[in-house]
Structures are given as C-alpha cells and as structure tokens.
Write a protein that binds this DNA or RNA. Structure first.
Lengths: 190, 190
DNA sequence: AATATACTTGCTGTTGACAAGCAAGTGAGT
DNA sequence: ACTCACTTGCTTGTCAACAGCAAGTATATT
C-alpha cells in the first residue's frame, strides 16, 4: 500500500493522488486506504515516517560512532548514497516535506520533529568536536547545524524541481572540502 | 483578490484554501477567482509571480551594481530585509515554492525559472569576481551558486515550518563571514 | 457459536471547473 | 441622437471527482 502511494505521488503529486487510486493500485478496494490510515494526511504521514526510517538506517550506517567534521562529511556521503540507491523514495520524502510546509498540514509535526532531531544531532557532533579539539571553538554549534541542514534541504529541493541542473555528488564534495576548511581547528584560516 | 489569497493561504494552507473563499473574502462572488485566473493553479501562479516581483525589487535595491562576494552578502541582507518587512508575503512565497515541488504542479515552471535565474545571477557575480581578482580562481561558480541558493531556500523552509527555532539574522551574519573567508582571494586560507 | 479482523460498498458534503446568463458599458454605422 | 452588435466584468446553476464516514460482508480465531 505504501509502495503504491510512493508510485502515485511520484507520478501525480500529492494533490492529484487519490486515496481510491492508492487502494486499487495496491490490489484492494477504493476505500481501504482511508480505512487503514484514517485520512489522506494520515497516509502521507506514514509514508513520510517509513521513508525516514530507511534514510536514518543509511545515516547510522554511514556515520557510526563518528562525530565532529568527520560525522558531517560521512552524513553527506550517506545522503548521497541514499539518494542514489532509492531516488524514488528520496524524491517522495522531499515532496512530503514540502507538502508539510503548508499551514495546518496535519503531518507538519512529523517534518518539524525529523528536521529538529537531525539539527540536534549535527549540533551535538559539533559540540563533541569542539570538546575533543578537532573543531574550532569559536563556532556556534546550533547555527552551523542549522546551516548544514538548510543546505541539504535546499539542495534536495533544487534537485527535486530540476534534477538535471543539480550535480549532487559534486556539490557534496565541495561542501565536504568547505566544512573541513571552515570548521577544523587547524584548517589554516587565520 | 491576490491579497485575499495571501491571507487565506497563510491561514489555511494551499490545500484548504478554496477559490470560493478567496472570491468572497475579496468582496466578490464565489465564482470570480476561477473566472479570472482560470484555475487554482493559475491563481497561485499569479500570487507567486506578484510576490516574486516585490522580492526582486528588494534584491535590485540591495545589490545594485555590486558583484562578487559583496553582491552575495548584499543579497543576503536584502533577503533578510524582505523577510522582516513582509513576513506574510515571504512565507506565502515559500509555501507556493513548496507546493510547486509536487510533480505535475501547473506552476512548477514558474518556481524553476525563478530559482534558475537567481542561480545564474549568483554564478555571474562570482565569475565577475574571479575576473577582477576579488574571488579565488579555483572555485566553480555554478557549484557555489547552487550551494548559496540551496542555503537560502533551505533556511527559509526551516523558518517556515518552525519560525522560533531559526535565527535568520544570526545565520545570515554567519553566512556572510563564511562567504568572505572561503571565497575572497586573499582570505587567509592556505 | 461468538467474536475479532480485514476489507468493501453505499453515501454525503465539499470543491474545482465550466457554461450559461446578465448588466453595464463601448463604439461603429446611420 | 439612435440603435444594434459586441465586449467586459461578474454571478449563478450545475456536474464530476474526491475525502471521509458508516454500515455491511467475509474470513479467521478462540
């Protein structure tokens, strides 16, 4: 059922995907999607959580126990792997994040929580990096974390609306170089 | 009519804003919004273009004939001024950009064009900066421009879904410092 | 046999879209 | 000055599609 939803969202977008079509594409009746998930928002919320879990697996695999700039670079690599391995799911996740931005969206909370949690994780990596001396001690962890998450979110948006104009891999390599230069304690910045 | 649409989108989001409500809020009949704009997407497209024009005024005012890193910093200031002066319009613009991300969105083209144009402008600033020697010559203008636009887009998204957790001004100041350090020809990076 | 689970079908209110209608002009020909 | 054709700006009637709900059926479990 969730797979059918992913297919239809990719093809028609959230607006023009109907609950009836999802149920029928999954081999059931027109009413099952509503019955199982309560509402369209409820279903999208589940899709969002389901894809997020898979992304978090990639993230955990890639980052492990690392922290500081290494963790941030590893997370970028993990994200690129996720987008390469499951572009359909990555696209749908971004579409749902976007749909959640609308006021009164019933699964906005899911998106806010996921973003907030990832921001907190990044801030924590930076704090650990400062503690152990690998990251400059004059940066604000929360601020850098927000910028890092904003970069990923914004880049994914650009990739979503115009895939061919975004060189995801090249941008990530640039970003990693950048992070190392600007955050590492002895990076050579005066 | 467009003002009424902005109000209703802010209050209820794009999905739950009805064409009838927009017409009636503007003091007309339920059918006028459809009649004038052809469709819901047509109306949103106009709202999007109308707000974008106002943003581009801010941008032109702020940047003028500057280029290179100075232009990028001035554009960040202009954006912060735009968001501070007209937060309602800025929010609606971001909501509409998000809605445009859905496949088959009928005004996706508007969003793609606006983003592409701004990316091209930024890339051009960087190219001019390299030519006149104020910007390092080992950076890729397109790549940096994409990252810059992604940062703004992503930050605005985070601000949209959770305004209190984003310190827009602080992040912009950080970003300006960052741009100067990493892009200026004699910034002190080895 | 009784009950729970999984799914379907019938129905309703809302909404986007469209077409027909109407009132107030505008303007050319006489 | 008059009138007839036409445009413009807006309203109203109507329809099909859709989300959501309630009642129903079938299959499995105890």
């Amino acid at each position: 059922m969730l797979d059918a939803a992913v297919d239809l969202i990719l093809e028609h977008g959230t607006d023009k995907t109907t609950l009836a079509a999802i149920g029928e594409k999954a081999g059931y009746s027109r009413g099952l999607a509503t019955y199982r998930f309560g509402s369209k928002a409820g279903l999208f919320d589940e899709v969002c959580k389901s894809i997020s879990r898979r992304w978090l697996d990639y993230l955990n695999d890639g980052v492990g126990e690392e922290f500081g700039v290494d963790a941030m670079c590893a997370a970028l690599d993990a994200y690129f792997r996720f987008v390469s391995d499951m572009p359909r799911e990555a696209r749908v996740l971004q579409i749902l994040y976007c749909a959640a931005a609308s006021p009164k969206s019933e699964y906005q909370e899911t998106s806010v929580n996921l973003h907030q949690r990832q921001r907190d994780d990044v801030a924590e990596w930076i704090r650990l990096g400062i503690e152990n001396g690998s990251v400059r001690d004059d940066v604000n962890p929360e601020s850098v974390a927000a910028q890092y998450i904003a970069y990923i979110s914004g880049m994914t948006y650009l990739w979503l609306i115009h895939p061919t104009s975004v060189d995801f891999h090249g941008a990530n390599e640039d970003m990693k170089k950048h992070l190392k230069l600007s955050l590492r304690a002895n990076s050579g910045i005066k």
